[in-house]
């Protein structure tokens, strides 16, 4: 399968600070990928680089083989729902659909948006500013899908929605993706939601890619091991210890395996996507700022 989105050593700098650095991954066609990471890890920066809003300072990003920055040729293939699902609030939903038609002469299919919005019961002649957050997100999604994009990028589309609206949004998204085979990159904090819908993962932490790959592969190669207190020596069959916690007599390890683990010494269990992500994110101890606050550690 060809990569729809490919980043190679991608970096973006704001002043002296790298918002994203040395970012390398590729996203195969037809995948629904989760872009995960703590606040400030560079998720939005990565998405903005991918849709061509930002110019890379280092490395490259390619969408369907093309550089997206300042490149109109790539735009018809891209659908983007930005953070907080921005819309012209004084426009009605019908006017936004008209706007889409005027700005996307190439491949715009207004019937996609009309059908979706009709199904959701959104009034065509009501200003979108007066709609609920969930409805606005649906309008934004409908607009993005009407472009019939090959790559759909969404920047925390469900962050501000209540659980029901979130569920409906993701359901709508998955439904249409299943129909069209669109590749999706979706950033979110809501790990449990992602676990249900994603089959690919890009995990960012402090401007770097921490983990990337298909969810099945990642879950297949990670295990939680529980056994007698471990002294830190190499364990046969374990490629890397991601996270460890110890009591006096017992150790719990999150590991990446590359072979057979002695199950007489260790109880090996599978891990879920959420635990895996938290395991990777939690292994860096935060640097305290006690001195700056004038308190003792």
């Amino acid at each position: 399968m060809d990569a729809v989105l490919e980043a190679d050593g991608l970096g973006k700098r704001y002043g002296n600070r790298w918002a994203l650095r040395d970012c390398t991954f590729s996203l195969p066609e037809g995948q629904v990928a989760a872009l995960v990471g703590p606040n400030g890890a560079g998720k939005s920066t990565l998405l903005h680089l991918a849709v061509g809003l930002l110019r890379p300072d280092d490395g490259s990003v390619r969408v369907l083989g093309q550089q997206p920055y300042d490149n109109v040729a790539v735009l018809p293939d891209l659908g983007f729902v930005a953070q907080d699902t921005p819309l012209y609030r004084d426009f009605t939903a019908a006017e936004l659909v008209t706007m889409g038609g005027k700005l996307n002469r190439a491949r715009w299919d207004a019937s996609v948006a009309r059908n979706r919005l009709a199904q959701l019961g959104i009034a065509p002649h009501q200003r979108v500013g007066t709609l609920s957050g969930g409805q606005r997100a649906q309008v934004a999604l409908a607009l993005a899908l009407s472009k019939r994009p090959r790559l759909l990028l969404l920047d925390e589309p469900v962050a501000s929605l209540d659980p029901l609206a979130r569920h409906e949004f993701l359901q709508a998204l998955m439904g249409s993706v299943a129909e069209t085979g669109t590749t999706v990159l979706l950033s979110s904090h809501l790990l449990s939601d992602l676990e249900r819908v994603c089959d690919h993962l890009v995990l960012l932490e402090t401007a770097k890619v921490r983990l990337t790959g298909s969810v099945d592969d990642l879950l297949g190669t990670h295990r939680q091991l529980i056994g007698a207190r471990h002294d830190g020596s190499a364990i046969p069959g374990v490629a890397a210890v991601i996270r460890e916690s110890h009591t006096d007599r017992q150790s719990t390890l999150l590991v990446r395996v590359d072979g057979w683990v002695d199950e007489t010494r260790w109880t090996s269990t599978e891990v879920g996507l959420e635990d895996l992500i938290l395991g990777y994110l939690g292994d860096h101890r935060r640097q305290g700022s006690h001195a700056a606050w004038g308190v003792t550690a």
């Binding site: 903005h48 849709v51 061509g52 809003l53 300042d70 109109v72 735009l75 018809p76 891209l78 659908g79 983007f80 930005a82 953070q83 907080d84 921005p86 819309l87 012209y88 609030r89 706007m99 889409g100 700005l103 996307n104 002469r105 190439a106 715009w108 934004a140 607009l143 472009k147």
Partner: peptide, 13 residues
Amino acid sequence: HGTHRLVWTQGVS
């Protein structure tokens, strides 16, 4: 309002 991200990712540069 963030709408530049909406309008600049449609079909026009």
